[in-house]
Design a protein around this nucleic acid. Structure first.
Length: 677
DNA sequence: CAGAGCCGCCTTTTT
DNA sequence: GGCGGCTCTG
């Protein structure tokens, strides 16, 4: 029988078998954080805790799934009946969503409430912003919808007044602070009137629920144990939820590493993991410091990066393993970088390292544009993580809008989107039609679709037929299944979409995938909500197993690579302005977060780490012109960091060696000779 | 002259 | 794909 607790080191075992008060595990990169958390869940279950009384909060739903699978495997190997899969697991947002669906009525939420993602939220703010500006262009720079959403979200998640948030993050808008405050207030009212919940609302309503005198104690008593992964990336509202959930029961385990805090743009701060003992008195802290992942030569680089931080990171990582010294590859330009990366990937592949054991990490999604072209040219299959490609497709949003309307006809945002698809209908006509529907009225009673004929009357005649088709499709009879309804909505929308978009075939495939995703759903708004809460990382994700070779390269943003590891890691675009991103350089905290991000990238590697620095950049990545500029190597590659790197050069600017030129000339004469024959 | 539609610009990270 | 700015249309 497998003794999974015996397989741990002393500190890990202390964390796994801890009993009593709350527990904080400070775990450096590669020190077995996931193993510890998974094993603790297994140990709790094996000690008799019923699985449904364990709540495991993770940063992504994928992480939750992976951990529960590992828990099951541990339990099976040890001869215990596997029960990990029945543990309540997911992200803060997903668990909030489930809780709110279950208790919608007592919380005063409409039955089919819609969950909107960040871009939908920005669109609602744009509606409110338009109202506020009275349809006129502002006379001076006024925050745009994404900025407004940023300010709103930050105020909500930090609990600070909007004026203070503006002062910090958008000082240029200070004189419009009152207008911004009014817009935020109107935004909250608008969402309520339309039955919309944004990501922040999910947390706010969950917090309200667990703080409620009647409902709160019931919700809190549901769980014996609450465990939280990646605690360095929680925000103030999430901490409030945990405090309320553990109001009278200290059994809380949090795991994290303040050196890897990389989500301040979501109002997270590593203060919460550092202040844990003050917020949860009587807690125990366990430090995990033995790295089991990387060779020491890789950790030397990471430690040197950490040493450059003004405040210094807490821990130095040490490993018994050895590996080749990491390389710094200086490339002539971004094309040379793409070539150098491909060559090294293929080299490693030849040496027997599968593509799946290699990853290319980038600061921003666009940093791999050229590389992706080169990978395709060389037939190297890859999957790109990070970015939200699928949900950004206009056609996907169009169909999702019908899904949301089917359950929540008050969803003005979806109406606004759908109406504008019709011929001759722009923002002005769409707004008139929405007004005719009685939106955004304040209460949730009354049938919106009863006013449909009034709305149609507002539309130009050519739009009326198509509008009727879609509106009719919104109704579902009790005997029709959700999946059949979804298919009917797709058919109703198809003619409009094929008029509107050129590449109908590719888009149809996406819509098929979307309809397929409704198969086991209880309601269409759940499908829309689930997609918003866990966006597929690529189209193939939604369609099931990827239709590519069994072995493929991973291409990922550093953010999406958090918690993962590979034998070989390539870090691209290590030039100042890209990494660190110049968007983050206006504040000291911004720079320090970029440094932690760089640290996260480096510590993903087990055996081989290569950092690429292109010298010359194309100004317009996609444009055909040759505008370019010269970049400085990343400031994180300080002399003390470079001491641990071997610098090599790729793709010199010099003209190719003479022998190559002779060959080229010879081929010209050979070609011409053929003409004379 | 309001409003629809087209052209040319740009794009950090994500629940 | 979104956005500002422009032009054309009803």
């Amino acid at each position: 029988m497998f003794d999974y607790v015996g397989a741990l080191n002393d500190e890990q075992r202390a964390a796994v078998t801890h009993q009593g008060g709350s527990l904080r595990v400070l775990a450096g990169a590669g020190t077995g954080k996931t193993t510890t958390l998974t094993t603790r869940v297994a140990w709790l279950l094996a000690s008799g805790t019923p699985p449904e009384r364990v709540l495991l909060l993770t940063f992504t739903r994928r992480a939750a799934r992976a951990m529960l699978t590992r828990t099951d495997a541990l339990l099976r190997r040890s001869g215990t009946e596997a029960a990990g899969q029945r543990v309540v697991g997911g992200t803060f947002h997903a668990v909030a969503h489930r809780t709110l669906r279950r208790h919608a009525d007592p919380l005063g939420l409409p039955d089919g409430f819609s969950v909107i993602d960040t871009s939908d939220a920005a669109d609602v703010l744009d509606l409110v912003r338009d109202d506020h500006l009275g349809g006129k262009a502002p006379s001076r720079r006024f925050p745009r919808k994404t900025t407004l959403h940023d300010l709103y979200s930050r105020a909500v998640n930090t609990g600070r007044p909007i004026s203070a948030v503006i002062g910090d993050t958008a000082p240029w808008a200070t004189q419009d602070a009152e207008a911004v405050a009014a817009i935020c207030k109107a935004y909250v009212a608008r969402k309520r009137a339309l039955g919309l919940l944004d990501f922040d609302d999910l947390l706010l309503y969950w917090r309200a629920a667990v703080r409620d005198d009647r409902l709160g104690p019931r919700l809190a008593a549901t769980f014996d144990h609450v465990l939280v992964d990646e605690y360095q990336d929680v925000n103030a509202v999430q901490v409030d939820v945990l405090r309320a959930l553990r109001r009278s029961d200290p059994r809380l385990t949090v795991v994290g590493d303040d050196a890897q805090a990389i989500y301040s743009f979501r109002a997270a701060t590593p203060r919460h993991i550092l202040d844990f003992p003050q917020v949860f008195p009587g807690s125990t802290t366990v430090l995990l410091e033995h790295n089991y992942r990387s060779g020491q030569q890789i950790l030397d680089v990471a430690n040197a990066v950490a040493d450059d931080a003004p405040d210094g990171f807490r821990a130095r990582l040490h490993s018994p393993r050895r590996c080749p010294r990491p390389q710094l590859v200086r490339c002539a330009d971004t094309d040379a970088e793409a070539t150098a990366v491909c060559e090294r990937i293929l080299d490693c592949h030849e040496q027997g390292i599968p593509l799946k054991e290699q990853a290319v990490l980038i600061r921003a999604g666009s940093h791999s544009d050229l590389l992706e072209l080169e990978l395709s040219r060389r037939h190297i299959p890859y999957v790109k993580y990070g970015g939200l490609k699928f949900l950004e497709g206009a056609h996907v949003k169009d169909l999702l809008a019908t899904f949301r309307l089917a359950d929540n006809p008050r969803d003005e945002l979806s109406w606004f989107r759908l109406l504008q698809l019709l011929p001759g209908v722009g923002p002005a006509t769409a707004r008139k039609a929405i007004t005719a529907l009685g939106l955004p009225g304040g209460d949730h009673d009354g049938d919106v679709l009863a006013a449909w004929p009034d709305a149609v009357a507002v539309l130009p005649p050519p739009a009326r037929m198509a509008a009727d088709v879609v509106a009719t499709a919104l109704h579902r009879s009790p005997e029709e299944s959700v999946a059949v309804h979804a298919e009917r909505l797709r058919s109703a929308l198809m003619p409009i979409l094929s008029d509107r978009y050129d590449d109908v075939d590719a888009r149809t495939a996406d819509l098929d995938a979307l309809v397929a995703a409704t198969a086991d759903a209880a309601r269409l708004s759940d499908v829309a909500a689930d997609l918003a809460l866990e966006p597929p990382r690529s189209t193939s994700d939604l369609a099931g197993p990827p239709v590519i070779d069994e072995d493929w390269l991973v291409l990922s943003t550093v953010h999406s690579a958090k918690g993962l590891e590979w034998d070989v890691v390539h870090v691209l675009h290590a030039a100042d302005g890209d990494f660190p991103s110049d968007m983050s350089l206006s504040t000291q905290e911004g720079l320090e977060e970029e440094r932690r991000l760089f640290y996260v990238a480096l510590t993903r590697a087990r055996k081989q780490l290569t950092i690429y620095v292109p010298l010359r950049y194309h100004h317009r990545p996609r444009g055909r012109d040759d505008l370019h500029s010269y970049a400085q190597p990343s400031r994180f590659l300080s002399p003390s960091v470079r001491r641990h790197l071997d610098t090599v050069y790729a793709g010199h600017l010099e003209i190719a060696p003479a022998t190559h030129c002779e060959t080229a000339t010879a081929s010209v004469s050979a070609d011409l000779d053929a003409l004379w024959a």
